[in-house]
Simulated scan of single mutants.
Amino acid sequence: MAIKPSKGFIYLLIVAVFVFGVPSEAHAEPSYAKYGRAAMQETANRYPDANIIDYKYEGHFETSGARNEERFRLWLRGSGGEFGVRVHVYVAADTGQVRNVELEEIAR
C-alpha cells in the first residue's frame, strides 16, 4: 500500500521550488558590474593611500562605432581629505572587453 502525500504537502513543495529554485532578478548582478570592478581596481591602483567610500554608476554612453563608455563616480577618503574621481571605462562595442580606463579628479 503506497503512502499518498497530502494536498498541503504538495502545495508547500511547489511553493518551495518557486521560492528557492527560480533565480530572482533582485539577486542578479547588474550588466555594468564587471566594469565597476575595473573602475574600482584602477582607482585603487592610482590612489593606494585612499579608501573608496562611495560608488555611483553614471551610465552607458555610445562614443563611436567601435567602443562604448561606462562611466562611474567614486568618492575617496585619503590623508588629504575627501575627493571625487570620475572613471571612464572604454569598452569594445562588439566584445564587451575593457580597452582603456581613464580617471579624472572632480573635487578635492
Rank of each mutant, 00 (worst) to 15 (best):
V98Y: 06
V89E: 08
P48G: 02
H88G: 07
A107C: 08
E70R: 04
E29S: 12
S31R: 15
R73E: 04
E62A: 15
V19H: 01
Y90P: 08
R46K: 15
G84Q: 04
L12E: 03
A92P: 13
T43N: 03
R46G: 10
N68H: 07
I3H: 07
R67L: 07
G59Q: 01
N51I: 12
E42R: 14
H27L: 15
E58W: 03
H27S: 12
K56H: 02
R37I: 13
A2V: 15
V85M: 01
F83N: 00
A33K: 10
G78W: 02
E58F: 03
Q97D: 14
G96R: 01
T95D: 07
G81H: 01
V22M: 09
V17T: 10
S6C: 04
F61K: 03
A50P: 04
G21Q: 10
S24P: 13
S64G: 05
Q97N: 13
A26Q: 14
T43D: 05
E25S: 15
L13K: 03
F18E: 05
A107I: 09
R77W: 08
H88E: 11
V98H: 07
G65L: 09
Q97E: 15
I106A: 05
N100T: 14
L12P: 02
S6L: 08
I3F: 14
N68Q: 10
V101T: 05
G84E: 05
I53N: 01
S79W: 14
P30Y: 03
S79V: 11
D54T: 02
E70H: 05
W75F: 08
A16M: 10
K7C: 07
K4F: 15
V91K: 07
F18N: 08
V91L: 04
G84A: 02
A93R: 13
E69V: 06
V98T: 09
L103H: 05
M1Q: 12
G84I: 02
I10F: 08
V89I: 03
H88S: 08
K7N: 13
Q41C: 06
V91T: 03
Y55W: 14
M40C: 02
G80P: 11
I10R: 13
A39K: 00
R73F: 01
Y11K: 12
F61A: 08
P48N: 02
E69D: 11
R108F: 10
I3D: 09
Y57F: 13
T63C: 08
L103I: 00
R37N: 12
F20Y: 11
L76I: 04
Y11A: 12
V17A: 15
Y90Q: 11
V15Y: 00
Y47G: 00
M40N: 05
R86T: 06
S31K: 13
R37Q: 10
Y35P: 03
E104N: 12
S6E: 09
A28C: 06
A50K: 04
H27M: 15
E102V: 10
V85R: 00
P30H: 03
A107W: 15
V22A: 04
R77L: 11
E104P: 04
R99H: 07
L74A: 00
P30W: 06
R86H: 13
T63E: 11
Y55V: 09
P48T: 02
A26G: 09
E58M: 12
